[in-house]
Simulated scan of single mutants.
Amino acid sequence: MSSVPGASEQALIDLVRRHPRLCVLTGAGVSTDSGIPDYRDEKGEWKRSPPMTHQAYMKSHLGRQRYWARSLVGFRLLAGASPGRSHHTLAALEAQGFIEGVITQNVDRLHQKAGSKRVVDLHGRADLVRCMQCNLLVRRHVLHEHLAELNPDWVGMDAEIAPDGDAYLENVDFSTFSLPDCPRCGHGILKPDVVFFGDNVPRWRLGRAMSMLDDSQALLVVGSSLMVFSGFRFARHAAARGIPIACINRGHTRADALYTLKFETSIDESLTALLAGLSDAQASPGATG
């Protein structure tokens, strides 16, 4: 496939008309208009320090204290975020039959809040917390209420918000932050039910996402640099199967050589134009696919 950077919006409309069952793969860029920061710049480099790894979280009690202290301050932004225009446009495209499903690398559940029905949360859900010993699942807001009771001095702190409900708290003694035990088994480590860096996507979830891609006629990447392999693998799989790939993302991505079309344009504007163009084509009596 030869990539066509800077392609026209009509080219994307035409591609979807020829391949009307899209699998959409989204990343942090689709949620930035909802006030949630992203991780990488237009070169695909980290904007800030990489997030905590799974291994560091599981091995270090102080690391977990740091994580939950920052989360108690920062997660309110993620919890209170509303879907943006891009989320609603993707839901509308699904409702009109153009989208087979959405694979999202985000953990904010904004696609579901916007009305998308067929969504694979590739990296899990930030609104749930799992005990790593007994697998108990609890709502995150319930745990945060308990954390606030245990750590009242931390509740009113103000800090710059980082991606995925983190907050920048520096030069703070996290060793004073109290962590609760699992309410069921009493000793398991409580961890957000998300895939941290260094961890693996569960096999059943990966299989569901791959099946969604295999049932589709084209792949549309939206707001992701695909620098993490868990997302890049879908572009690689689509290319290997000869499935056309379009991308809407500003700057470099790991899959630039694989795209049929690439748009370094506003996600909101590009998706809105796509919806309008496809709706016009459906309404036109002489339209052909």
Results as ranks from 00 to 15, higher is better:
167 A>I: 12
139 R>H: 11
202 P>F: 03
259 Y>P: 09
280 D>I: 00
210 M>P: 00
169 L>N: 11
105 Q>W: 02
240 A>P: 02
284 S>P: 00
136 L>T: 09
65 Q>L: 05
89 T>Y: 08
95 A>Y: 10
81 A>N: 09
232 F>G: 01
227 M>G: 09
66 R>K: 11
58 M>Q: 14
184 R>D: 15
269 E>D: 15
12 L>H: 10
240 A>G: 08
167 A>S: 15
246 A>R: 09
275 L>V: 05
100 E>N: 15
160 E>N: 15
169 L>V: 15
82 S>Y: 04
217 Q>T: 13
53 T>L: 05
212 M>K: 04
91 A>R: 03
249 N>I: 08
125 R>F: 03
13 I>S: 01
282 Q>F: 12
140 R>A: 01
244 P>A: 07
268 D>Y: 13
222 V>E: 05
161 I>G: 04
79 A>R: 10
131 C>E: 04
61 H>E: 13
257 A>F: 06
65 Q>R: 13
166 D>N: 11
156 G>Y: 14
228 V>E: 02
136 L>G: 00
269 E>Q: 15
115 G>C: 02
113 K>Q: 14
205 R>L: 01
265 T>A: 14
47 K>S: 10
17 R>M: 14
287 A>V: 03
17 R>K: 14
2 S>V: 09
174 F>H: 12
126 A>K: 02
218 A>N: 02
250 R>S: 10
258 L>K: 03
4 V>G: 00
201 V>G: 03
170 E>A: 13
91 A>K: 02
270 S>P: 05
89 T>Q: 08
61 H>I: 05
9 E>L: 13
255 A>T: 04
148 A>P: 13
171 N>I: 06
159 A>R: 09
275 L>C: 07
97 G>Q: 04
49 S>W: 09
282 Q>H: 12
19 H>P: 00
133 Q>W: 08
